[in-house]
Simulated scan of single mutants.
Amino acid sequence: MNKAILMNFVVDKENKRINVAREFDAPLPMVWSAWTQSELLDQWWAPKPWQARTKSMDFRPGGSWLYEMVGPNGEEHWSKADYKTIEPLKSFSALDGFCDENGTLNTSLPRTLWQNTFTEKGDTTLVDIVITYDKLADLEQTVAMGFKEGFTAGLENLDLYLSAQFDLRKQNKTSNRARVTTYLNFPGKTEEAFSFYKTVFKGEFTGRGLQRFGDIAAPDGAPAMSEADKKLIIHIELTIMGGHVLMATDAPESMGFTLTYGNNMHINLEPQTREETDRLFNELSEGGTVSMPLQDMFWGAYYGSLQDKYGINWMLHYQPA
């Protein structure tokens, strides 16, 4: 993935607002999902070494997003965004403010109105962000506290997320034959786990073998990766019994990921046709929760994810060979 084509940050004191224009080298549906789904926001919203952790999210007018920013020494700062208007794949606005873990607002601190507008520009997406303050002093205090640097770092996390999570899929799908795989995430122990599974099942690493984060070029301007993180696994495939394939990615906290047992395993379906992908997705999601709607992704696939009504996580991935 290329670096952001556009990044403008303007402080408009006359109108008491901050204007940010940020372009991403990804299609509109993918960028929209990253801004509107809690499990994706948690991956990039906080500038490292801080982490964002969602407690609850109800993305609809009148709903809210309650989340905490957790520091490297365990510091916790809670915020709540109350959604005002939503035009799917176009724009949304929210009133943001500091609160406690129960969502009770701190009335001694100011709230800010965010208006985010998404525009498709061919293969890229422009996000225009307008943050409005009630008082000029509040805006000036925010800028003095390093908002520009922190928010810019978060947006760079999103670049890295888009690249690292999906860029390798196209390389590893070499035919259009339908298959079912199991996709796993580990907080830094993928190589250890898969060496164990390789011994147990007497299987073989397939695809491109062990691919590490350090083996791929990070987006220009992305935060520097530690030597330890460079050695982690970005993608691995192991064929076990009956031709079944396990796949996995390391998702450590140092990269902003939050894993819990239960959300770290998906059954990955790769149907032969787009129509079959639609059918399976629609039927599996009935009564469940869609985490990412089926959509055309920038790496050329038709992809979505969901949790069915029994709590099982599924990914559907159709990509013509």
Rank of each mutant, 00 (worst) to 15 (best):
L95C: 10
L155F: 15
I312D: 04
A217V: 15
A301K: 02
S91H: 07
E14F: 10
P320D: 13
I267Y: 00
F201H: 08
G103M: 03
L316D: 09
P252G: 09
T152L: 15
F201G: 13
I18R: 02
S305T: 11
T249G: 08
A218F: 02
F201K: 05
W45Y: 14
L162D: 01
D42E: 15
S79L: 10
E76V: 10
W114L: 12
D12E: 14
W299A: 06
I5W: 05
W114T: 06
M297I: 14
A81N: 10
L160V: 12
Y67L: 09
A217G: 07
S91K: 05
L41G: 13
Q272S: 14
L158W: 02
F281C: 14
W35G: 09
F147C: 01
I312F: 06
S226M: 00
S56D: 11
D96Y: 14
R17M: 12
T181Q: 13
M297N: 14
Q307M: 10
Y303D: 02
Q319A: 08
V31D: 01
H317L: 08
L306W: 02
I267R: 00
T104N: 14
G150W: 06
S175G: 14
V245M: 10
N282I: 04
K189L: 03
S64N: 09
G63T: 01
N313W: 08
D123K: 06
T119H: 00
T258R: 07
V70F: 08
A52Q: 04
E227M: 07
W78E: 03
D123L: 07
A251F: 15
T36L: 06
W299N: 01
F298Q: 00
A144T: 13
F92L: 01
T142W: 12
T125I: 05
M255Q: 13
D100E: 11
F196A: 15
A218D: 01
H244E: 13
N172K: 11
M30W: 02
N263M: 11
